[in-house]
Design a protein around this nucleic acid. Structure first.
Lengths: 117, 117
DNA sequence: CCGTATCCCTTAGGATACTG
DNA sequence: CAGTATCCTAAGGGATACGG
């Protein structure tokens, strides 16, 4: 499944569905920036992997509902763990990036005695 | 960091470094299939994010060592959790895929039975 | 409303060659 | 050994238009 993680949209859709079942349009609004095409592609992939169940209500205006399966729920839980970790450590990462970027943007200052503090 | 997860090579490199420090070439061998270019790109990204520390030993044949920082170690732990989960559930996912694939390949047995081999 | 199919552009990333 | 730079192809993904 590490390859499914490599799929940015899949992760976001799973997170969105973790908050409850959604219809197609709802889901699109719940995942800002996703195009109609990618929503279709992503949902199909998730359904195929057994992480999401797709229910079609054959009403007058077509209505399709997407919800996590037990498997998908487990996956969502794992992803939430990752998300929590990333939130917790984002500051540290941002600091590391800032330090790194500052470092190689001053290639040749007369004296750069490792400016610390 | 969810975007770093979306980076397949980053994950694999972190996992490899989770087993100990490595030199450039060693790392390349430890991550089957990665090209020299992607190894460079990936390691730089990880160093920038503060997940990996890069140590240059200025010996006659250049020698560079990569190792996880504490931050990287925490990340590696999370990823291991994911990997464990995926291993545990791979059978279920494969079954779901097989079922799905079998389902939409026999839509209408009456005519045009989708000549497959 | 819920998709599917087409066009098209941007990017990831492999192969290769060269420097320190 | 450890990269860096260049080239080039394939895949990802947005915009749009059409079918059920």
């Amino acid at each position: 499944m590490l390859d499914r993680l490599g799929d940015r949209w899949s992760v976001l859709v799973v997170v969105a569905l973790g908050k409850g079942a959604h219809r197609f349009r709802e889901l699109q609004r719940a995942v800002p920036g996703i195009s109609q095409r990618m929503l279709t592609v992503t949902t199909r992939r998730l359904v195929r992997d057994g992480l999401v169940r797709r229910t079609v209500h054959d009403t007058v205006p077509p209505q399709v509902e997407y919800q996590l399966t037990d498997l998908g729920l487990g996956f969502a839980t794992m992803v939430d763990g990752l998300a929590a970790w990333s939130r917790e450590h984002r500051p540290a990462i941002n600091e590391a990036r800032a330090t790194f970027d500052a470092a190689d943007q001053s290639p040749h200052p007369a004296a750069t005695p490792t400016p610390r503090t």
